[in-house]
Design a protein around this nucleic acid. Structure first.
Lengths: 342, 342
DNA sequence: TCAACTTATTTACGCGCGTAAAGTTTTTAT
DNA sequence: ATAAAAACTTTACGCGCGTAAATAAGTTGA
């Protein structure tokens, strides 16, 4: 290992006995050089462990190998998980993913998109804040940079969207709950994104389709501290006797976890058993839902498929040079996960 | 806004009426040019909105303005929160933070450090995996790049360490629990890092100091799915009657949340009330601990101070050119957060 | 074996900016 | 007002690599 001497591609080309342009070609695509040549380079690579200067590379390429991943709120393990998944897929494909979180702040989201621009990314995977997003800014960004939206849709923005079929989610949960007990009321907060709206509307549809009267309970609350909102709102509706059913379907699991905490505090036992006062269900199959008290019945998002499809869509976009035709929306169905809470 | 014309600093310098070297100087430090000059540049900046090419800048600077932030497991909201905190402080100071997660995998941790090296970062804030970390690799990295360790210490590695005084944490919790009921047994899993060891040892010390017999219950389990370990281990120790006290002090909150789920499943009511079978407490004041059933009594880490001090230490290191003297370890004390669980 | 390809080499330029040196202008201090 | 100091301009080079064009060498197939 005579390393620490090689300072640039010039020197590395010399010690490997190959010309610099060919070495450069190799690093852009190892399979683009003759096997014999490739072997010589890789041999030298083991001896000297040289790596091209990433800044020089990125400066000269018209398109970098960077991929931006933007999520609205990283302290939500759902996004952490899906980001991890996406990250790994990008790395495997030889890209350089960089993760950003808007931390629930739309100004920061815009800032991130601005920074991202100067990274000249080959593409971006963006889960927008949703309602709070600066639509114009996001739209303009998507015009400049190949972008796939995921999780939360913005109509017409980005080259593709990958997410869940929220209407189906709620249909599934409503039907299950109606089949097994009292028809549920729907517990929500002011919607942060279109998903929340689709869930509420889906609830209303599904209830009517089953011949029941929909009951939407909206509690006050802002931001991304959903558990807190669910907890406070839960206490409030319980204390004021606002629950119109003994079955509560929450818009999402985080809200449900907060609601469960409220139930616990008020001594209302939750579950399917005879001695239980309430049934509670949510949507998403959040990483922590399994450890709720009781474990939360929910509709599971397909993390794997969403991340897989998002990355696929982006790669397709990158290769296809953007002319990949019309905007495609891919929605995955959820699966019922029956646990003790409902 | 005649933007979209300016393609480099040369052109921007021309339209602003200032020479390029001076403009360059401005971007490196706006206060390094005469106020009048600065005003002219900033005036042009508003009209043309030009930004220096980040790759060209980083290529030519010996030290970039990049800062790497590495955490062991981003799906843990504790790390998500502290990363957010650190990120913002770095940005405010004009640096370019990039967040990485080892996702509990030591091979990935090493990979990250390797990638980080080629980013030529001005400094790195590293929360190591702990016991699983490749000590040699981390040590070598710290030799090359100014690094501040946080959360989990590796003796002698890095220029500084910032974390919590885990011994004090446990002393606090043990004393509280002893004062208010039965002395606790200690519920832990195989330690992933030195913090876990310090907590167990701290527990033993504190119990002995109070004249009680320490009882450590270690359950099997690996990886960073602590809730799962706590849940399974909890079921196991409950079913086998291994609990030596009606008060269970968990090594950390995530473990405790899993344990609470096990208690719930076994119908053991947790809390301080007369009808409760168990008291349970944890450490960290994890973001979700407030929403446990019951809400978890715990010792709160000082997120703010840890991130503040870590960043301070790193900046001091960056400015001081590394010769900042001996390795400093800063430990912050925790505060008792009394909730319903104990 | 020899032409027709394919792949590698040589040479050269450019990317956008940091930075040094020498000369010029402006500011500060006495 | 004047000398000294500070800030700016001009000129020029280098960073490490992508990439193009012309040329040379190697490979393939009939």
């Amino acid at each position: 290992m005579d390393d620490s001497k090689i300072r640039n591609m010039e020197q590395f080309a010399r010690v490997s006995g190959i010309s610099r342009p060919t070495v450069s070609k190799y690093f852009n695509d190892p399979s683009s050089v003759r096997p014999k040549t490739r072997a010589r380079i890789e041999e030298a690579l083991e001896q000297y462990d040289y790596r091209p200067n990433i800044f020089a590379v990125n400066q000269n390429r018209r398109l970098t190998k960077n991929i931006g991943i933007v999520v609205p709120y990283l302290a939500d393990p759902f996004f952490a998980e899906i980001a991890r998944n996406i990250e790994q897929r990008c790395m495997q494909a030889g890209f350089w993913p960089t993760l950003f979180s808007a931390h629930g702040d739309s100004a920061l989201e815009v800032e991130i998109l601005d920074s991202l621009r100067s990274l000249k990314p080959a593409g971006v995977l963006l889960a927008p804040l949703g309602r709070a997003s600066d639509r114009a800014a996001v739209e303009k960004f998507c015009d400049d940079v190949p972008t796939v939206l995921f999780d939360s849709n913005i109509e017409g923005v980005g080259e593709a969207f990958v997410g869940s079929d929220n209407t189906q989610f709620v249909k599934l949960s409503v039907e299950y709950l109606c089949r097994t007990g009292q028809p549920p009321c729907f517990f929500e907060m002011p919607p942060v994104n279109p998903n929340a709206n689709k869930r509420r509307n889906g609830y209303i549809q599904a209830m009517e389709a089953n011949g029941f009267d929909p009951q939407v309970i909206r509690v006050a609350g802002e931001g991304w501290g959903f558990e807190e909102v669910g907890y406070r709102g839960g206490l409030d509706v319980i204390d004021r006797g606002l629950l119109t059913s003994d079955t509560v379907l929450c818009s999402n699991d985080r809200l449900a976890i907060g609601f469960l905490a409220a139930c616990y505090e008020r001594g209302m036992r939750v579950g399917r058993d005879a001695d239980c006062a309430l049934r509670v269900a949510g949507h998403d199959d959040h990483p922590f839902s399994r450890f709720g008290c009781p474990p939360l019945t929910t509709i599971a998002q397909d993390y794997e498929k969403i991340s897989e499809r998002s990355v696929e869509a982006l790669f397709h976009l990158i290769e296809g040079g953007r002319s990949a035709g019309p905007r495609i929306e891919t929605l995955f169905e959820g699966k019922l996960v029956m646990r003790a809470s409902a």
